[in-house]
Design a protein around this nucleic acid. Structure first.
Length: 405
RNA sequence: GCGUAGGUGGCGGAGCGGUCAAUCGCAACAGACUGUAAAUCUGUCGCCCUAUGGGCUACGAAGGUUCAAAUCCUUCCCUACGCACCA
């Protein structure tokens, strides 16, 4: 936790825990609740360490995990290091580059650190961290065949992703069937009572439930949390651009939240923040009454950032945003480069990866998208040379400060 | 293994010898508008060149035919579907 000490959080309300931001609980909510009240359970959340940062999608599950931890249940963070090293060539020939063991371990280390913003790896009921290579890498072909025999092809094909591919006459590879099995086997190996994960993982989590039943003769609960999506256009995650990661700066987070569509406001409050349910109702009401959604979105941004940063940093982010975008000022975190006198602006921007190519730069010039950020003067010369320190704004949100050496 | 239909830009999907850097839709980017958005409208959308022009690289891969190929031929690779095979 960034601000509050875990210990100081009040005990979460179990009904809220099991309904807010929850897509569905398998087999059902009541049964699960009964179990939670009668005993302490073990539940886990699995992540494949494919990149160096966790993002908001992970946070939703982690926040839930935190609540379970606070209620005294045992939680496990499972790092899918094995699955991540295998790589998933589901696309075409764009074989997703396999991660090396080292990369995976590095990522995993970062994950623990990032996850500790929400769950605690210390204290009496500390969260455990596990790696699925521990059991998956040891499986023999025989083990795998036995595991595969637990599931029929038809059951696999029920997965809508596969269904769609069948419809579109797209290939499905055998190993893609093995993925849910591997993930499902994690549950068996950990012998947990429950698993939590994004709604997109429901199928895999349910495979684990089936395997658990047949192999360990045990009921495994599955908690599918809602995904953060725009109800109308599926803007989120798709473009990645506005997916908030744990490593984003407070400025970046603010801008990303503000770029969400209005339709995501209510859901954003519901699943990403700690505002009370009463307040949530109030927010819905305000929206309906015609309050400027911008105000609410700004609040949403503050709420989300406050999960990662302190109050002062939240304020800074908002101030920066207002000044930069609403009032046309300069962002606080603008990047700087030193160049020699008479360097071509086009060369600098390409080198700084602010534009992809000189051709793109030219187009931007033609479109009047390149301007002096302070005076607003448009740069119209494609061969503009840097003569003095100057700040440029390219399009709506690209900025660069160029200094002459 | 046989047969059929296919493999085109980030994705979907046209084109089937020159006028193709490739219609169109989505995504993206820019401009206008706005609430920073969304929606809408307009424009852009391979790379390079001081350019209303020129060059280069691209249409699964490699060769070939042709003045000229994404488009024709050959071989190979890959996918789907049907048939056959089925320990």
């Amino acid at each position: 936790m960034s601000k509050k000490d875990l210990q100081n959080l009040s005990n979460p309300d179990i009904n809220e825990l099991l309904s807010r931001g929850i897509e569905k609980i398998y087999p059902n909510q009541e049964f699960f609740k009964k179990n939670l009240e009668e005993r302490k359970i073990t539940l886990y959340f699995g992540i494949d360490p494919t990149g160096p940062t966790l993002h908001l999608g992970h946070m939703i599950s982690l926040k839930k995990l935190r609540d379970f931890q606070l209620l005294g249940h045992k939680i496990i963070l499972l790092i899918g290091d094995f699955t991540a090293t295998i790589g998933d060539p589901s696309g075409k020939e764009n074989t997703r580059k396999m991660l090396t063991t080292q990369e995976v371990l590095d990522n995993a280390k970062l994950y623990k650190e990032q996850a500790s913003k929400f769950i605690s790896f210390e204290g009496s009921n500390k969260a455990e961290i596990e790696y699925n290579s521990k059991w998956l890498s040891k499986m023999t072909f025989k083990d795998i065949i036995e595991l595969s025999s637990q599931m029929t092809v038809d059951q696999m094909l029920k997965r809508d992703m596969f269904e769609k591919r069948m419809e579109n006459n797209e290939p499905i590879y055998i190993h893609e069937f093995l993925y849910p099995l591997m993930q499902g086997y994690d549950s068996v190996a950990l012998n947990v009572d429950a698993e939590i994960g994004g709604n997109d993982q429901t199928f895999n989590m349910l495979v684990g439930r089936d395997l658990m039943k047949s192999l360990n003769n045990k009921e495994k609960f599955v908690i599918a949390v809602k995904l953060l999506v725009d109800p109308t256009g599926k803007k989120m995650g798709k473009t990645e651009g506005n997916m908030i990661t744990f490593k984003d700066t407070n400025y970046e987070m603010y801008g990303k939240v503000m770029s969400w569509t209005d339709g995501m406001i209510v859901e954003g409050f519901e699943i990403c923040t700690d505002v009370s349910l009463d307040e949530l109702e109030n927010i819905k009401k305000e929206l309906k009454e015609g309050k400027n959604p911008k105000e609410l979105k700004m609040r949403l941004a503050r709420e989300i950032i406050s999960l990662f940063y302190n109050d002062e940093e939240v304020e800074q982010a908002e101030k920066n945003f207002t000044e930069t975008f609403s009032d046309g000022g300069l962002p606080k975190d603008l990047s700087e480069v030193d160049v020699s006198k008479d360097s071509l602006l086009s060369d600098i921007l390409v080198a700084q990866k602010i534009v992809d190519s000189k051709s793109e730069f030219r187009r931007l010039i033609d479109q009047g998208a390149v301007r002096d950020a302070e005076t607003g003067e448009k740069i119209t010369d494609p061969f503009y040379k840097i003569e003095e320190d100057r700040v440029f704004k390219i399009g709506a949100r690209r900025f660069i400060k160029i200094k002459v050496k």
